[in-house]
Simulated assay, not measured.
Amino acid sequence: MLGFSNAKINIGLNILEKRPDGYHNIESLFYPVSWSDILEVVPASTFSFHCTGLPIPGSQENNLIYKAWNLIKPTDKAVEIHLHKILPMGAGIGGGSSNGAFALNLINEVLELGYQKESLLELASRLGSDCPFFIENRPMICLEKGNIFRETTVSLSGKYIVMVNPEIHVSTAEAYSGVIPTPSPTPLKDVLENTPIEHWRDAVKNDFEAGIVKKYPLIGEIKDELYAKGALYASMTGSGSTVYGIFSETLTLSFPDFIVWQGKLD
Rank of each mutant, 00 (worst) to 15 (best):
F49H: 12
Y160M: 09
T186H: 04
G128W: 03
P55D: 13
P256E: 04
F149V: 11
G94Q: 09
V243D: 01
A210D: 10
L71T: 03
N194G: 04
I107N: 05
S34A: 13
G92Y: 03
P55I: 10
H199S: 13
Y176F: 15
V110Q: 13
G95C: 05
E167M: 14
S177H: 13
T172Y: 03
N137L: 11
F133M: 06
L113Y: 10
F30Q: 02
V41D: 08
L121D: 07
L83S: 05
P181N: 10
T152N: 00
G96V: 04
L226W: 07
F30Y: 13
K77T: 03
I197S: 05
L83E: 02
G178Y: 12
L87F: 07
T75P: 04
G90F: 10
E40M: 08
V213M: 08
L83F: 04
I107Y: 08
L71Y: 06
K85P: 10
N62M: 05
K264Q: 15
G220T: 09
C131A: 13
E198M: 05
T182F: 01
S129V: 13
Y216L: 06
K159V: 05
A7T: 04
P183V: 01
V243L: 05
L127G: 04
T172H: 07
P217W: 11
R126K: 15
N14I: 00
S34D: 14
Q116A: 12
Q116C: 10
K85H: 08
L111A: 11
A68W: 04
H199Y: 13
Y227H: 02
A175D: 01
T52R: 15
L39Q: 11
V260F: 10
L13M: 07
S239W: 01
Y23I: 03
S125A: 15
S125H: 13
K85C: 11
K145P: 02
E80C: 11
F149N: 06
L226G: 02
A234E: 00
F30N: 01
P185R: 06
M89N: 04
N147R: 06
Y176E: 00
H84A: 09
K264Y: 02
E136S: 12
G12I: 02
N165K: 03
D130K: 00
I93Q: 01
S235D: 02
I15V: 15
S254E: 13
Y216P: 04
W35D: 02
L16K: 11
